[in-house]
Amino acid sequence: MSTRTLVSETVIEPGTGKAFEVRRGQVFKIEQLVGGQCADFNCFNLHDYKEYFHTGRTRHMHGLNPSVGDFLWSAPPRERPMAAIVADTVDSNDILYSRCSAFLFEYQYGLPVHTNCHDMQAEAQREFGLTPDDVHDSFNFFMNTGIEADGRPYIGMNKSKQGDYVELLALMDLLAVPNVCGADVMATSSFELKPLKISIFEGDEQELAAIEERPELGTFTTQRTPADFKQSQIRVERELSRDPAYEPDFTNVPIQITDIPVDLDDEETALLEDLRATGEFGQTDAEVLRHVVHSWWITRYMRGPKHFEAEGAEG
């Protein structure tokens, strides 16, 4: 990594953030100058700001705590890898929690004027004409989180030390917007705000080529652009009104049901009865058999994380 050519180096101080143009193939590095600091992060397609990083799709693809080898995905209907995490010396990142905001500090702490990630993002992004409404849920680098046994999420003390870093390889031209998380009264940054160093490097063509061989970087017909939208223009009016010419056009509607008769032999019948007796897979033979078919397909053929109870493992 040390052989990369440095393009720029910037320190972002507590209470601030900064928007950076990062070109496809360049590497964006966030480094701990002191240690223990969470970096909230937004990013947008530099040529179409409506394509932006989506915590939800990224959670689906990589879980709650992505790290090296995982992508930052854009929101539906684009759904493309925007950047790849290519280095991470801590492996303690979060995409479960939303950005902190002014409201949280007023409601939970009685502090109506307080550094917060939403407002810092908004202020940093304003340099490129974006509004507070354009701030999206953040990728929280170096944020130590998890889920308790009872299902409640928690924020742990920050694990990063001085010199720790993460590196993102841009897979499209980006507006990358990190900020120094302002949550000094939460454990997020171990109860202290500290500066972060942002470096941009020219990329390595071989590294980019290797990433682009991943199946996620394929081209899929469902990755739509404004050219595919029935409503392709961005609204400028804030007031909403009904389009009298609107005609619903939902996918695969009407949903049509087909009966599939299946003759089972004695052995298969006994197996089906055993499955039904567990009470885990449906109430009727037909429900159980349908469960078997779909869970079998998921187990055998599904690409990516399976998100299926009992099947469990990532694909």
Binding site: D259, V262, D263, L264, D266, E268, L272, D285
Partner: peptide
């Protein structure tokens, strides 16, 4: 054995 009819959508 048994005949089972599964319902599936398109």
């Amino acid at each position: 054995g048994t005949k089972v009819s599964i319902q599936m959508n398109q």
